[in-house]
Design a protein around this nucleic acid. Sequence first.
DNA 1: CGCTTTTGACCAGCGC
DNA 2: GCGCTGGTCAAAAGCG
Length: 205
Amino acid sequence: MDFHENPNPNPSYTHPMENTDEPQFELSDYLKFDDCWEEDTSFMECPWQTPISPQRANDDSFGYTSTTRRSSNMKCTNGAKRIRMGVGFRIAFRTKSELEIMDDGFKWRKYGKKTVKNSPNPSGLKHMRFYILSFKGNENRNYYRCSTGGCHVKKRVERDREDSSYVITTYEGVHNHESPCVIYYNQMPLMVPPGWTLQASHPSS
DNA sequence: CGCTTTTGACCAGCGC
DNA sequence: GCGCTGGTCAAAAGCG
């Protein structure tokens, strides 16, 4: 496999629902965010979608990161801000799975974990914050970065609060390399990450 | 020994 | 302005 001869080394994403052969989990929803946002609120139909805003302008990997707020009032269901992101490709999968960690073919390195409140009533003294967060009913959100050198793709994994049997996985960015788990047969990828379709490699590979 | 995970701290954005 | 929150950092611990 020669990455350099691949005319398009980036995976091209297709609708995950087209992949009906995945036996390990049920993919029920997905969202796609790309870098050419128009005034189109159709993708806001999913109730757990939230607005995106530029945050740290000096972020070393993307220029922007996203802010996601999922408070109980879900004020984001319409009229959300749309702000162009540096790299700008985000896609979220909602999958029915008992496992939070699903092998998508790439190597990920965990760089953060956050306990997210379920309570709609944020309150309390600042120094009581972690005490409050430790109560039952809070969810963990895990942050991963692609561990391949030079690849800045990030992944965020959390349980759906409305239905804890679902896992929400949000990918941010596009891999600049191919999945180490792709096996080629007759110039076509035989194994792909769940829900993804990769472009066939160049015939020379 | 090198890589990954854990986890408390920190920072910036946002809402009140 | 203050407090809450999401996202990230980085040191320490764990693991093969």
